[in-house]
């Protein structure tokens, strides 16, 4: 029986050998670039500076990590910043998509769409430079100058938005909304385009106005897409580096330092040779949390998307 099954499998492989042959490069690629680097995980359990042979230290790096204040600060910052950013950008993307959908003039709609997509293609370094100027506390800062001119602020008490813990996160979220909202509307616009127009016509016959149509047709039709977008992005919340790195500074590390920038500072801020064992341990912990999030999201996804998971 077993022999028969094996022969059957081999026969199938032979039958579909062309497909397997096409799959081979992908398989090799995955092994080399995705799985082979995972061998580096072993360094998390060693004392390793990249020069001498690693020495096994068991879970010492993890114990040290859990005892570090900056680690926990970075961990909670990562979770909070990522999730709030995700919810805000998604919410704004939905609102903007619905508003765009209401624009009747096609040319104007396309122009607006193009304009709001553009910031997505700007690098984070350039974005940070621009907003540093706009939010500068000096007289060249656009926002502070405006607030002073309308009498909200005194000229001698301008706000250093990107250099104050209280203001850094709101500024960060606004910058993210500016940069990413447009791009995120793409998927919602596609969903809106697929809504059956008969529904709107039927609603109009029933006397529904614009607001009622949006509330009872558009938004329910978008709900599944919104949940899918949130769930898919929730799995990636631990991977936050570039935007936080370019906008943070020494004054706001308590609210802006995230796990990946924590690893960066551990590696490059000591002026001496970093312990790659420790930074690998932090990286591994981050990956494990990310993995758990993926599984949780997969579970939710199956519920929301009628059995379809994300992995």
């Amino acid at each position: 029986m077993k022999e028969k099954k094996k022969n059957n499998t081999m026969a199938k492989i032979y039958k579909y050998r062309g497909f397997y042959l096409m799959f081979l490069p992908v398989f090799v690629f995955a092994i080399i670039f995705f799985y082979a680097p995972m061998l580096g995980i072993r360094y998390a359990f060693t004392d390793y500076n990249g020069i001498k042979e690693p020495t096994f230290t068991g879970i010492q790096n993890f114990l040290r990590m859990f005892s570090m204040h900056n680690f926990w600060s970075a961990f909670w910052n990562t979770i909070q910043i990522s999730i709030i950013k995700l919810l805000l950008t998604t919410a704004f993307a939905v609102i903007v998509s619905i508003l765009l959908n209401e624009i009747a003039n096609l040319l104007f709609k396309k122009v607006v769409q193009t304009i709001i997509y553009l910031p997505h293609f700007m690098s984070w370094v350039v974005t940070a430079s621009i907003f540093s100027l706009i939010l500068s506390p000096s007289s060249s800062g656009l926002v502070n100058t405006f607030l002073v001119n309308i009498g909200v602020l005194d000229a001698n008490s301008t706000i250093y938005f990107l250099g104050t813990s209280k203001w850094w996160r709101p500024a960060y979220y606004i910058i993210n909304i500016w940069k990413e909202t447009g791009w995120q509307t793409v998927i919602f616009m596609a969903t809106l385009a697929g809504i059956n127009t008969d529904l709107y016509e039927a609603a109009a016959i029933d006397g529904a106005g614009r607001w009622a149509k949006m509330r009872y047709i558009t938004f329910p039709q978008l709900r599944n897409t919104i949940l899918t977008v949130i769930i898919l992005n929730l799995a990636k919340v631990m991977n936050l580096f570039e935007s936080a790195f370019v906008l943070q500074n020494n004054a706001v590390l308590d609210v802006a330092n995230v796990l990946e920038t924590y690893i960066y500072y551990q590696s490059f801020n000591s002026g001496s040779i970093p312990n790659y064992g420790y930074t690998t341990a932090v990286g591994l912990f981050k990956s494990l949390v990310g993995c758990v999030l993926v599984l949780v999201c997969n579970h939710w996804s199956k519920k929301v998307r009628e059995g379809r998971g994300i992995v």
Binding site: N250, Q266, S267, F268, S270, S272, I273, P274, Y278
Partner: peptide, 19 residues
């Protein structure tokens, strides 16, 4: 000990001086 701790320590010193 310096290799192990100075990254964290220097980051904290910079942060405190700046604040």
């Amino acid at each position: 000990a310096m290799n192990q701790n100075n990254g964290d320590l220097m980051t904290e010193k910079q942060s405190l001086v700046t604040k």
